[in-house]
Write a protein that binds this DNA or RNA. Structure first.
Lengths: 140, 140
DNA sequence: TAGTGTTGTAACCAAAACAGTTACATCAAT
DNA sequence: ATTGATGTAACTGTTTTGGTTACAACACTA
């Protein structure tokens, strides 16, 4: 199991917008060239980022822009925009209530699973787009 | 995206073995009854747990047993037994090296991704099968 | 107002992952 | 030999992902 590449693509999209929005119009075709995936995929992900209010897209004329400052966009924001699953773990549905383990497994595991997911999300919220932009400029 | 239910099933299996191995023979059919999934699925996951040296399975005569004490088996051990993916995130393959963002995105993101994955794995390693067994007995 | 470049979206397709099932060879004890 | 298990192959259906073509809708510009 792996997370879809939508997450890294979305991050790449936002980085490009942050980097280039003041110098040129950032279209799905331009992004497609940098990321090297089909422009329709870019437009779909841009749509999800737009629904999540991370970017604004100019209809007709074209071009995508950050909808909030780069230091207010975290990796967690990006992740949640493109991964709609609420629960990280898929629990088997029908444990047997007649078995002492089957009856209690949800009670015992649910809290642990929440904690694990929170640990991951907390770490994601520590990094902002602004941090990534800074790193990118250092590596250019 | 969600992790496969193999993780929760594997945990359920180990809990059942820990709970019942001294009182009765724990076969894939018995486990199938508590977990409510097909015995072949159980046998496949048991095979993965056996490869990871978490359980021992008696061929022919049947029955599964913990291969190490319950307090030496963590959720991370279980997770790694059944999820063979090394990398949690699927990176898009061919960013454009002519674009300053495309050229550096891996350098910039790889470290962050590692940190996120480590945060999750670290939290998983905090809980042992022994903890879960204790919780289960409290809830019985 | 016609033309241009862009977005939004529908309609497909192929590949992979999952979950489920049947079937059967193999094994170890009685 | 019989019995009860495991290990595994083969097949099915569903979902997700990634990719593609096609085209309507939109907003600017000449």
């Amino acid at each position: 199991m792996q997370f879809s590449s939508r997450f890294t693509i979305a991050t790449h999209i936002l980085l490009c917008i942050a980097m280039f929005q003041n110098d040129r119009k950032v279209t799905s075709n331009f992004l497609s060239g940098s990321i090297n995936v089909n422009p329709v995929i870019i437009r779909n992900i841009l749509g999800q980022l737009s629904s999540a209010k991370l970017v604004e897209i100019k209809a007709g004329i074209g071009g995508a822009y950050l909808a909030k400052p780069a230091d207010e966009i975290t990796l967690l924001d990006i992740f949640k925009s493109v991964e709609k699953e609420e629960a990280l773990f898929h629990f088997h549905e029908n444990p047997n209530p007649k078995c002492p383990v089957g009856r209690t497994i949800h009670t015992v595991m649910d809290g642990k699973i929440d904690t694990i997911q929170s640990a991951m999300e907390n770490e994601m919220s520590q990094t902002t787009l602004s941090d990534l932009l800074c790193e990118t400029k250092k590596n250019m």
